[in-house]
Design a protein around this nucleic acid. Structure first.
Lengths: 141, 141
DNA sequence: CGCAATAATTGGTGTCGTCAACAGTTGTTG
DNA sequence: CAACAACTGTTGACGACACCAATTATTGCG
């Protein structure tokens, strides 16, 4: 019987935990957590998103999005605006402070992944990335 | 600004969550969870381990090991025995029922990883596995 | 108009990672 | 050899998180 920690799926599980811990310690000083950071980075790419869109694209439960956006609003990094065509929806947009935060922490964020992938050469990192994207598939990740 | 969910580290985090969920749904009917299964599989490789060793090798807090071994003992899959040379320690060993459980669920366990890695060809899975082992490094995973 | 469907929100439940504290035991050192 | 530091298993607490059910306001459809 091979040990479970030699299984690819279990390796993914364990490395995922480690990766999340690294991100969270990096974000610790800013008062945010990985989930907030994911929302911010996503907002930076689309210039406004509905909350259900955030949940679907980032893989979080809609009820989780509520608290995340609440926190981001308290910090002044994002704000809810009424959707123009649907009064049920709210459009979450990045504020200038939020954009500045992303600029300031950009390099530090990249260092997190760099640290995680230290044992790998650049070409290998590229290979790993494409493989992971394939595994993530359409279901996103 | 690239979206965070296009980052390798974040992909690992997300796929790790998905992998853990797959394992847990597979184990759901047996009443165990991924953590128990990891302990069982580890015990199958070493024929007896101290609890602190389990914690260190599997990456779980020592306090978590207590409950895990409790559950495994209740199910009759493992049992604690006094360590011969140190009365502080307990040696956790697999019972015959535990070994039978691993035998019976072996194929199903492999299907979990197979399902996760569906988009990848066998050679690619091998590549991914070796890369993940490299990333895991000595810190284990 | 009536009704199903949807967006955001609230609340509850179970799991989990982390840390602090404690008793029993071991080993070390003055 | 006696005091003290270190270690093992254990308990407890706290926060974070995934998951699900229910509620309110709103939209779209038959």
């Amino acid at each position: 019987m091979r040990a479970l920690h030699a299984d690819t799926g279990y390796l993914l599980y364990r490395l995922g935990l480690r990766s999340g811990q690294l991100f969270n310690t990096f974000l610790q000083e800013s008062g945010l957590r990985l989930r907030h950071y994911a929302v911010l980075r996503y907002l930076a790419t689309c210039e406004g998103a509905l909350q259900r869109e955030l949940g679907a694209r980032l893989g979080y439960d809609p009820s989780a999005i509520v608290g995340l956006v609440d926190d981001l609003e308290k910090l002044g990094f994002a704000e809810r605006r009424p959707a123009p065509d649907d009064r049920r929806s709210r459009v979450v947009v990045l504020t200038e402070d939020g954009r500045a935060f992303l600029r300031d922490t950009d390099q530090a964020g990249q260092r997190v992944t760099d640290e995680l992938l230290t044992p790998l050469a650049p070409a290998e990192r590229e290979t790993l990335h494409t493989l992971l994207v394939r595994v993530a598939g359409n279901g996103l990740a």
